[in-house]
Design a protein around this nucleic acid. Sequence first.
DNA 1: TGCATATATGAACAGACGTTCATACGATAT
DNA 2: ATATCGTATGAACGTCTGTTCATATATGCA
Lengths: 125, 125
Amino acid sequence: MSEKAAQPVGDACEIQFVDEGKVENVRRAMKSAEAIGLLAETFRILGDPTRIKIAFALSKEELCVCDIANLLGVSQSAVSHSLRTLRQMKLVRFRREGKIAYYTLDDEHIVNLFDEGFRHVEELL
Amino acid sequence: MSEKAAQPVGDACEIQFVDEGKVENVRRAMKSAEAIGLLAETFRILGDPTRIKIAFALSKEELCVCDIANLLGVSQSAVSHSLRTLRQMKLVRFRREGKIAYYTLDDEHIVNLFDEGFRHVEELL
DNA sequence: TGCATATATGAACAGACGTTCATACGATAT
DNA sequence: ATATCGTATGAACGTCTGTTCATATATGCA
């Protein structure tokens, strides 16, 4: 076990660490808790079938709301809600041209995210 | 508009496309629907605060279940459930040493995923 | 002004999800 | 054997979430 023998607290592994050193390393790396939270949010937003299809489509072409809806076979309302969610995480951006709203991915990082994701996923097929 | 004038189907934008050409491009890119589904699953799994903290920690050090639990201040049961979920998507892997189970990330792609994710997230801070 | 089209949004409902609690399993030590 | 420790797992419960439905906003056209 390790050095300080304090009172038991959790129900897992009492209170001491099996590998104190390792844990300290991780603690330091985790200092930016805020960033990790946002990262989880980002993944969560992309972790929905409809939203990821939308994001993937937009990684290929700039598209308007109703084309997205028809392409994916999803209602216009659902697409609009999804786009709002994506917008809130700054994952997509749009411009208006008359009645039509054209959406695109907000930056290239998302495309890279897809590429890395696919590389992992390909090994599961 | 475009060629085939069929009967209205959806409620969005009738049935025709605003940009037929673009939509065809995306259709081709989307051929591997299975991969996109798995990608959504992967993102969804990583889109949970507890699971992403676990994955992040494991991207720094190989850790046992109870150290993860203490480090994150989460119950051992919750960690175990989370690890199972991560395992099912082949995101983590483990080895047993006596009573203790040591977990690591399954491959480097996940680390790259984090890096790309952080690059996006940093612009939100 | 009135009407149609494209998009946005609020409320509500059904299903999914993460945690907790209790318990089971496997390994070590006495 | 039995106790203990680390881990795994099933059930249950409360919460969150994505879709639908109805409606609102906004732009263009007659």
